[in-house]
Design a binder for these strands. Structure first.
Lengths: 229, 229
DNA sequence: CGCGTCGTTGACGACCATCAAGGTATGTGG
DNA sequence: CCACATACCTTGATGGTCGTCAACGACGCG
């Protein structure tokens, strides 16, 4: 039931599992799917729901996170257009393992397990892409666990800054989200983030002007990120 | 080149990706594989090696871990007989994402990417199992990240104790490994582990006699594990 | 019996979350 | 256009958690 624009098609084909499919194959798959629009902060799924569908992001960003009993959250993934969410849970028909919510205005394609299974049976080459996607997520989570266990806040922050820097392809860039969200993502608090940013600035590694960061010394920042400082 | 006993077959079929295969299919796959025996502590792979093979554990236990620049390690997975190691990395032909080593005396079946690909092409039903295995690992890592970020040491230890308890199916059990290894697995030090165990004991939740633990109050232990205490 | 690994305990300090308060920015309605 | 509300950010003070260092006792094994 979902109409797809040409741009939608291009975005969907960004996902490894769909990259090998023809336009017609994607369109016929989408014919059985729902297009969902969400407002910022709107919930997509919760850990106690059964995973009947998984999602392809057409527009916006999705945050996948765990919640502690005290209400703290830890972001596991941050997904953007062309990425798939919860395909592993859906394939196994278990409960979703975490929370997911829209970060900004989001459009999703919701694919239910049955129609996806049918699509896989007709296009066996999707499997390689599916595995690739899962493998990427495994690697990401392994890196996250490493960071949380073995790196202190300065190293995690340095990492995040380097990521933003390379994403912007410039030594000066504007943070892609509010500082409080960055704090959350690297597993700390806004207060500690603020202090750590200031200490970087005092050390002459970066310059902070509100949401705009300029990296003054990439080498030191790299050293911080890998823990050699 | 690897001869498989009937017991080997039974163990291999424990892995979700092999569960649907016939004896002959497994034997013909194994004909192109190597059986590897390892001593305790012996390395299996390192993060800078190219992942040409992945492994099925026939005997013993394998620890997969990340290493910090300071030499601390964080265990990501602990695998036993019938589990597969590094299949995601091997399928994508990238570098291994972590270290792996034998915990005790280990026997592995090493499967290289090419022969596995061939096997998958002949037995498409393996795919579902492959995905199941990856999905399980994703869930495990997500849980680990949650614990590291959001739970304090007592909660993580309570969790570990509950796991050992249910594995033993008895309120009294002997730890499956040295305490220092448990400390490592839950991301802390032997000293802190020792103190936390003592505090549990002082609170009357468990009794500790060397490596033997008796759970005196399951409810409180559960509360500790979920963070409600 | 001696040695090495493991486990425990104590003292200490680093790191970081929390609480509280004030400052800044941004958008909204009058 | 200004006043105000509401977020977001910063800064300081404080305390808890946990890692580190050091010393010692307990095992297990050759």
């Amino acid at each position: 039931m979902a109409d797809l624009s040409d741009q939608d098609l291009r975005i969907i084909r960004t996902a490894p599992m769909f990259s090998a499919l023809s336009d017609e194959a994607i369109r016929s798959l989408a014919a059985h799917c729902l297009k969902i629009m969400l407002h910022p902060q709107e919930a997509i799924f919760r850990p106690d729901e059964e995973a009947n569908d998984f999602f392809v992001i057409l527009r916006g960003h999705v945050r996948v996170y765990k919640l502690s009993p005290e209400g703290n959250q830890q972001v596991l993934h941050l997904f953007g257009p062309g990425q798939t969410v919860a395909e592993a849970a859906a394939m196994k028909m278990q409960d979703y393992p975490a929370h997911a919510e829209a970060v900004d205005a989001v459009t999703l394609l919701a694919i239910d397990k049955a129609t996806f299974d049918a699509a896989v049976r007709e296009n066996v080459d999707m499997v390689a892409g599916l595995v690739t996607g899962l493998s990427d997520k495994l690697k990401e989570l392994a890196g996250l666990a490493e960071q949380l266990a073995l790196r202190k806040v300065p190293a995690r922050l340095a990492n995040a800054l380097l990521q933003e820097m390379t994403a912007a392809a410039s030594l000066t860039f504007t943070l892609s989200m509010a500082k409080k969200d960055i704090a959350e993502q690297i597993g700390t608090t806004p207060e500690t983030l603020s202090r750590t940013l200031r200490s970087f600035q005092d050390d002459g590694v970066i310059d902070v002007q509100g949401r705009t960061i300029t990296v003054l010394n990439v080498d030191v920042l790299n050293a911080l990120a890998t823990g050699q400082a």
